[in-house]
Design a protein around this nucleic acid. Structure first.
Lengths: 338, 338
DNA sequence: TTGAAAGCGCTAACAT
DNA sequence: ATGTTAGCGCTTTCAA
């Protein structure tokens, strides 16, 4: 591997027979230049393989064109699409991402915050696996902050969240539209924002249709095993139901497996809607799962857009924004054919 | 949100009644200072909330203390632990990560490469989802490059890879040690490095034990469905087997489900070893899967260490390094109890 | 239309 | 032990 020496404006200037200032103008397209001069500079730059130092430019302009991404939990299944969505926006704005994983460690988090600020990031996106509220990273920061997925406890902070209520409502409305009337709710763990909001969304949607849950909601972990248990429990308890909304695809998949093993058919006897649109789950389920997609990459997109807007000086109102969920239809709710 | 004005060395110097140079020395711990002076500077810095600009420091020292991470595919299940492992090393070296997702787009990849170089990253880690070889990003780059998980086609490049052969061998040896003698191999898609290497590892390990596969290996996608199909196919073909190595946890899980539904018991009739140690799969399987852990975070750790060593001027030999896999024992290979 | 010069915030060599 | 100065690579007035 050859280590090429770095070229500077001065080198280019010398080769083109002009001053450094002229090189800067030629390359940035600013100011008045004779086009012949510009050509000459461009040619010289190309010949030398000149690559401007963003470092020096940043020092000069006071903008690093970099945003820090602070993931409070470790990066996970939800964080990935958020990052991807954010990058779509940032790349278009020529902004790079500095990634810091604090892994839930407050000390590390403060440390990373300092690191980001010393690098003069133009803004900070805070994200993490859970949708529960988290303490604000500070209210006297010299740069804008946007919380993605993780809501800040400080209501004046800007948070972008997925819409659990609307997601649950979509699930219920879809079950109803496929002819289900006796619907059960298989929840995640209690006392979590996600669970609570999905619960309300469910109840409200049922209410609008003049319906009630066919059984009290049951709570458990986000696991397939819990889904299987729930199925067994409901059937043994003699609950009559023809539709189920499970708060995650893992639960839904376990629930589906559980029903099948108990001799019930999906979707003929019971229609099932999951949540997350997790490819590994929805595809492997038999039959493939209808589910709610929380639109995580859209969430990242919105968060980054709000970030850029603030960097560009726009005044964005504090508070939460919800990104609507969508329904993805598959076999587990297919209308029973005669 | 208050935007605090940024403080510079000069501000601190003025408040402490010293020169900027002295402030620099006091804060960096370089040179000779009367401790009273140092205290005074530190106090002033603290009072002003001074945060040194890494930007200016980098320009001065020529080191950005940042490495670029170029993910050629989109970030996925495998990339996450690699990033985490890398961050462990980098953080200790005070080095930050700039993340760029090229998503398999060569144009975007070149673009990101330019961006990284213009930011004067100290080095570049290339990674991605597949372990197949990929073209080198260039051999005349001004900074060191390490390939993690994705092997470069250029043998003089430094690549860090997981060890498929040793992983497969561990699986086979474990099956043998739990008393299995008629072992089948459920492969992934043909013509992939991962599949090929796991295949050789399997054959070699069997050979060392004086055994052969109980049936020709069968190839299919990395899916649960393929695992189920494979189980059905083997059983219907009348193949007698008491052990199976499946090249992924998804396949293993499907295989396990398939066997159970055909009336065979795991691990009593058949012991199963998967590969990946993917929590969502190994835990949800019934029974939980024994599997091979490819040690991805260790891989990231090694890659980042080689990166730092090179940045520090060490001369690292080109070529591939393999990170050994390990076996994680669970129920799917438990020794049958009488 | 182009060049010269100052300065972004810091560090390091040299003076004092 | 501390201050002065120059310079990292670039942009941006201001002069020429």
């Amino acid at each position: 591997m050859t280590r090429r020496q770095l070229t500077t404006v001065t080198d280019v200037a010398r080769l083109a027979g002009v001053s450094p200032g002229t090189v800067s103008k030629a390359l940035s397209g600013q100011g008045q230049l004779r086009s012949a001069t510009r050509e000459r500079v461009l040619a010289a730059a190309k010949e030398l393989g000149y690559r401007p130092s963003q470092l020096a430019k940043s020092l000069q302009t006071g903008r690093s064109y970099m945003v820090g991404v602070l993931t409070t939990d470790s990066i996970g299944r939800f964080t990935i699409p958020i990052l991807t969505g954010a990058e779509d926006v940032l790349e278009a704005g020529q902004v790079s991402m500095m990634l810091c994983e604090s892994r839930g460690d407050r000390v590390r988090e403060r440390h990373y915050l300092q690191t980001m600020l010393s690098r003069r990031v133009d803004g900070i996106i805070v994200t993490g696996r859970s949708s529960d509220e988290r303490p604000s990273i500070g209210d006297d920061l010299p740069v804008p902050v946007v919380y993605a997925l993780n809501k800040s406890t400080d209501p004046s902070d800007i948070s972008v969240l997925h819409d659990d209520r609307n997601g649950a409502a979509l699930a219920i409305e879809h079950l109803i539209s496929t002819g289900r009337r006796r619907i059960v709710l298989i929840s995640g763990p209690p006392h979590h924002a996600a669970t609570t909001n999905r619960h309300s969304g469910t109840i409200e949607a049922l209410h609008r249709a003049g319906l009630h849950l066919a059984a009290d909601p049951v709570f458990g972990p986000w696991s397939e095993e819990w889904g299987r248990e729930a199925a067994a429990w409901l059937v043994r308890a003699g609950v009559e139901f023809d539709g189920a909304f499970c708060m995650s695809d893992q639960i839904a998949r376990g629930f589906s497996d559980g029903l099948r093993e108990l001799g019930l058919r999906v979707p003929n006897d019971v229609g099932i809607v999951g949540m997350d649109n997790w490819d590994a789950m929805v595809g492997a389920s038999r039959p493939p799962l209808t589910t709610i997609d929380l639109q995580m990459s859209r969430l990242g997109y919105v968060a980054a857009s709000l970030m850029l807007a603030q960097i560009d000086g726009e005044d964005i109102e504090g508070g939460s924004r919800l990104v609507p969920s969508i329904l993805v239809m598959r076999e587990s709710t297919r209308v029973a054919t005669a």
